[in-house]
Write a protein that binds this DNA or RNA. Structure first.
Lengths: 189, 189
DNA sequence: ATTAAATGAGCAAGCACTCACTCAAGATTC
DNA sequence: GAATCTTGAGTGAGTGCTTGCTCATTTAAT
C-alpha cells in the first residue's frame, strides 16, 4: 500500500454531491462534483466505481445521519407521547437545519438509480424507531395501524411541516408543535 | 392552413410521456416518447417547442385532471366532514387508478424543469378546493391552521395512503378509511 | 396549387467513464 | 538515517455514447 485513500477526500466528494444534487438533481455531472470538491474527475472514480455507486452511498449516508441524529438523546425511559415527540422534533429539526441534505435525499428517493438493496438498508437504519412505534401500538396508546402506515404518515407529515417552515421560518416552533398535534391526534387512541 | 394539427397526436404524445416518465423519470428521451406515440421525433417538436414545454404542459394536464376528477360529484350542500371526505376519496382513488399518472406527476413535481409559473397555475386548479377548506376553517369545524399547511398535510397523507394501498391492494377500502380518520382526527376541532 | 404537417438523418453539446502517465508516500535495503 | 524501490492515488485529455433539437425533403389536407 503506497498511498492510502483519504477519508477527507471521500467526504469532500460526498459533500459536493449533496450540494450539486440538491441544486440540479441527480443529473448533476460527475465533472462538476469533482471540480467542486477540488479534485480531478478521474479521482472521483477511484473513490466510487460509478456514479450509481456514489448516489447509492450518498443515499445511505444521509439516511444514517438522520437516524443517528434521531437516536441521539432519545428518551428511552419516557412515556410514549414524549418519545414520539422526540422523534418528530428530530426529523423536523434535521430537515430544516440540513436543507441541502434534505433536498438531495428527496431527489435520490424518487430516483430509480437507488437500488432496492439500498432502500432496504436505508430503512434498516430506522429499525429502532420502528420498534418503538410497534411497542407503543401494542401498549394501546396508538390506534391499531400497520407500522408501515404509521411510518409513512410520520414521514409525510414531517415533510409537509418542514416545507411550511422553510417558507415562513419565523413560525418554526409554532408549526413544529402544530404538526406534532396533527400527528398525535390523528394516531393516538 | 393546409393541414391542421391533430389533437389526437398531441394526446398520444402526452400519453406516451406519462408512460415513459413514470417508468424512467424525466430523463426519458424525446426519441423514445415519439416512437411510443407512433410518430417521428421531429413531429414531437411541432406540437411542443421544447422538451421543457412538453414537461410543463404534461404537469398542468395532470394537475387539471386530478382537480376535475375531484370537483366532479362534489357535494356542495353537504356538511364539512362529508365534503372533506369526498376530496379525500377523490385524491386516493385517482392516485390508485392512475398509477402511471401519479408516478409521472411525482417525478415532475420534484424536478426543477417545472417553472414557477406552471406550479402557480397548477395550484390555481385547486382554488375551489382551497376555498372549501377555508370556509370550513372559518366555521370552526377545523383547527385554525393556515391553508397551505392543511393542503400540504392533505397531499402528504394522501400520498402515504396510496403508497400503502399500492403494496396491499386487497385492503384498499380499509386503508382509505383509516387514512381519512387520521386526517380528520388530526385536523378537526 | 398551395401550404404546412410529418419525416428522420444529422448535428452540436453533454455525459459517464477510461487510461497512459506522473509522482507522493510507504516499504526495503544498506 | 539515507538511498532506492514499489505501489497505487491523482490527473485530465480523450472516447464513445446519448441527448435535444434542426432542417431539407416528402406527404397530404385544403
Amino acid at each position: 500500500m503506497a498511498r492510502p485513500l483519504s477519508e477527507a477526500k471521500r467526504e469532500a466528494i460526498l459533500a459536493s454531491a449533496i450540494k450539486l444534487v440538491a441544486a440540479q438533481g441527480i443529473s448533476a455531472p460527475t465533472a462538476g462534483i469533482a471540480r467542486d470538491a477540488g479534485l480531478a474527475e478521474g479521482t472521483l472514480f477511484t473513490y466510487f466505481a460509478s456514479k450509481d455507486e456514489l448516489l447509492n452511498q450518498l443515499y445511505l449516508e444521509l439516511k444514517a445521519d438522520l437516524a443517528a441524529t434521531t437516536l441521539k438523546g432519545y428518551p428511552v425511559a419516557a412515556g410514549t407521547r414524549e418519545r414520539f415527540e422526540h422523534v418528530w422534533n428530530s426529523f423536523v429539526d434535521w430537515g430544516i437545519d440540513h436543507s441541502a441534505e434534505r433536498k438531495a435525499l428527496r431527489q435520490l428517493a424518487v430516483s430509480d438509480r437507488i437500488s432496492e438493496a439500498s432502500r432496504r438498508q436505508g430503512s434498516a437504519a430506522f429499525s429502532e424507531i420502528s420498534a418503538m412505534l410497534e411497542r407503543s401500538r401494542r401498549d394501546g396508546v396508538l390506534k391499531d395501524h400497520p407500522q408501515a402506515f404509521v411510518g409513512a404518515i410520520l414521514e409525510a407529515l414531517t415533510d409537509a411541516t418542514i416545507e411550511l417552515i422553510a417558507r415562513d421560518p419565523g413560525q418554526r416552533e409554532h408549526y413544529k408543535k402544530a404538526g406534532f398535534d396533527v400527528l398525535w391526534h390523528g394516531l393516538a387512541t
